[in-house]
């Protein structure tokens, strides 16, 4: 090997390592900043790490916690509803070999494909006369519509991965279609559906732009609450603390999925969400 190539290799290796480190820092810094600031109770980050305290966390007002639990309730309900609607639909599409299957998939995809800004504006106009704006039901409906495409995609994939023979065996043994669905299909796809539910829940928890237009004083998701406070009043320490809490929730979610599935899964499924 020529010595020049050796030097080149060393140079490129250090350059590469530097690049990865820089990228890592870039990817990490917002979260690090937010977490640091949340423990310092100020509006600026002090890298000397002096005076770490939990004051900001303790100062989180009840209104924020209300918004947080409201969001959790809405996200859980929307996820449950989305699953309950998507799984039978996917089952009918896959097992029933429906001819309009692609049409259905594409229609359900619409809320996902249309930019949330546009979707939000459209919903605003319709929800107001229906008294669905500033309303838990309105938020719920919007989230369900958004979650259906993910739910359907997961369910379709799960059902196609499940050999039809199991349900056929159940039928031949005397089970009705409903019984075979409940006793054989559901238990076998349940683990996959649980993972799907987790993903959908997280998506629903952090949806912002869509819900901004249909939210109101009575129905404020936490993302909207944090947003309006920063726009109206600037950065407040306890708001930063709340943001920190959301980071912990995201970390918990990631740990849960990574532990059950392995990190490889994350690249594929998270990839599909526009973020």
């Amino acid at each position: 090997m020529k010595p020049r190539a050796g030097l080149g290799a060393v140079f490129s290796r250090t350059a590469l390592t530097l690049y990865v480190i820089v990228m890592l820092i870039w990817l990490l810094f917002p979260i690090v900043l937010v977490l640091l600031a949340s423990f310092q109770g100020k509006l600026e980050v002090d890298f000397s790490l002096a005076g770490l305290n939990l004051e900001a966390y303790k100062a989180i007002p009840p209104a924020y916690w209300q918004a947080f639990w409201f969001t959790v309730r809405a996200a859980v309900s929307a996820t449950a509803l989305a699953i309950v609607i998507a799984v039978p639909a996917a089952w009918a599409m896959v097992r029933g070999r429906l001819r309009g299957r692609r049409v259905l998939s594409n229609v359900v995809l619409i809320p996902d494909v249309v930019p949330q800004l546009i979707m939000g504006i459209a919903l605003l106009t319709v929800f107001i006369p229906l008294h669905l704006s500033n309303n838990f039901a309105g938020i719920l409906l919007a989230l369900v519509a958004l979650s259906l495409s993910t739910g359907l995609r997961f369910s379709e994939a799960l059902l196609e991965g499940l050999p039809e023979e199991y349900e056929q065996a159940a039928l031949s043994l005397g089970a009705s279609r409903l019984k075979s669905f409940l006793l054989v299909t559901i238990p076998l796809i349940a683990p996959g559906i649980a993972i799907a539910a987790l993903f959908i829940f997280m998506q629903n928890l952090v949806t912002f732009e869509l819900l901004f237009f249909v939210a109101g004083p009575n129905a404020t998701p936490i993302s909207v609450r944090l947003f309006s406070d920063i726009v109206d009043r600037g950065v407040i320490p306890y708001a930063v603390a709340m943001a920190g809490i959301l980071v912990y929730v995201a970390m918990a979610f990631y740990t849960l999925v990574a532990v059950t599935l392995g990190p490889k899964y994350m690249a594929g499924s998270v990839m599909s969400r526009k973020g």
Binding site: P163, A169, A170, L171, L173, R177
Partner: peptide, 30 residues
């Protein structure tokens, strides 16, 4: 008649034993 009303026993090429049930539960399913 649909398959579940015909009183027919079917053995599949890949056996199609229900993975989430024990041997006894599988046999007792019918």
């Amino acid at each position: 008649l649909p398959a579940n009303q015909r009183n027919v026993g079917l053995v599949f090429q890949n056996y199609a034993l229900f993975p989430h049930m024990t041997v006894a539960e599988n046999i007792a399913f019918g």
